[in-house]
Simulated assay, not measured.
Amino acid sequence: MAYYGNLALRPERKPQQTPPPARQTEKIVRRRQLPVGEKLLYLFTVAVCAVVAGLIIYRYAEIYQMNRQIQDMNRTYEQTVGQMKELQREVERLSEPKRIIDEARKLGYVQLDPNRGITVGENGNAVAMDTKK
């Protein structure tokens, strides 16, 4: 009878009798250690990777520091521009002719008559004189 995958049709095998082994020896497999040259190669590779990683981290730290300085300079620049604008407005406010005239009157100065001329003496004193005579 042919066997076509049906276990019911497969003939039983007779167990083979083997003599029990007298002594079982277990084979111990020892792993070979890596040679010194290969260990040094691996150590050198790890050291190079660590140095490269350290350099990259160092460069990123420098870049971060530069960006921080740029931000601080920009902040200082913006503050200075704001102060300059405030000072420019104050200059414009203080330069108004009406305000200057009012301040001069408060200090006791008098406005010259446009028909009178001014002459400066030898000692530095200014004297107003009539130009219409």
Rank of each mutant, 00 (worst) to 15 (best):
Asn6Gln: 07
Asn6Asp: 15
Leu7Asn: 15
Leu7Ala: 13
Leu9Pro: 00
Arg10Gln: 14
Pro11Ala: 15
Glu12Lys: 06
Glu12Gln: 09
Glu12Phe: 04
Arg13His: 05
Arg13Trp: 03
Arg13Leu: 13
Lys14His: 04
Lys14Asn: 12
Lys14Tyr: 02
Pro15Gln: 13
Pro15Asp: 14
Pro15Cys: 06
Gln16Ile: 09
Gln16Asp: 12
Gln17Cys: 01
Thr18Lys: 09
Pro19His: 02
Pro20Tyr: 04
Pro21His: 03
Pro21Gly: 04
Pro21Asn: 05
Ala22Arg: 10
Ala22Asp: 10
Ala22Lys: 13
Arg23His: 08
Arg23Trp: 00
Arg23Phe: 04
Arg23Val: 14
Gln24Met: 09
Thr25Phe: 05
Glu26Arg: 08
Glu26Ser: 10
Glu26Pro: 00
Glu26Gly: 04
Lys27Ala: 07
Ile28Ala: 15
Val29Arg: 11
Arg30Phe: 08
Arg30Thr: 06
Arg31Asn: 07
Arg32His: 10
Arg32Leu: 10
Gln33Leu: 10
Leu34Gly: 02
Glu38Arg: 01
Lys39Met: 13
Leu40Gly: 01
Leu41Asp: 12
Tyr42Asp: 12
Tyr42Arg: 13
Leu43Gln: 14
Leu43Met: 05
Leu43Thr: 08
Leu43Arg: 09
Phe44Ala: 10
Thr45Lys: 09
Val46Asp: 10
Val46Ala: 12
Ala47Lys: 01
Ala47Asp: 08
Ala47Pro: 00
Val48Gln: 13
Cys49Trp: 08
Cys49Met: 15
Cys49Val: 13
Cys49Gln: 07
Cys49Lys: 02
Ala50Gln: 05
Val51Trp: 09
Val52Arg: 00
Val52Ile: 13
Val52Ala: 15
Ala53Gly: 09
Ala53Thr: 09
Gly54Phe: 10
Gly54Ile: 05
Gly54His: 02
Gly54Thr: 12
Leu55Ile: 03
Ile56Arg: 00
Ile57Glu: 08
Arg59Ser: 12
Tyr60Asn: 15
Ala61Gly: 07
Glu62Gln: 14
Glu62Ile: 04
Glu62Asn: 06
Tyr64Ala: 08
Gln65Asp: 12
Met66Lys: 06
Asn67Ala: 09
Asn67Thr: 11
Arg68Phe: 04
Gln69Val: 11
Ile70Phe: 01
Ile70Pro: 00
Gln71Phe: 05
Gln71Ala: 11
Gln71Val: 03
Asp72Ile: 09
Asp72Gln: 15
Met73Tyr: 13
Met73Asp: 07
Met73Leu: 09
Asn74Met: 07
Tyr77Met: 14
Gln79Gly: 03
Gln79Val: 04
Gln79Lys: 06
Thr80Asp: 10
Thr80Leu: 05
Val81Met: 08
Gly82Pro: 02
Gly82Ile: 02
Gly82Phe: 05
Met84Lys: 05
Met84Glu: 10
Met84Trp: 06
Lys85Trp: 10
Lys85Cys: 03
Glu86Ser: 07
Glu86Pro: 01
Leu87Cys: 01
Leu87His: 05
Gln88Lys: 08
Arg89Phe: 01
Arg89Val: 03
Glu90Arg: 14
Val91Cys: 08
Val91Pro: 00
Glu92Pro: 01
Glu92His: 02
Arg93Phe: 12
Ser95His: 03
Pro97Gln: 07
Pro97Arg: 04
Pro97Met: 03
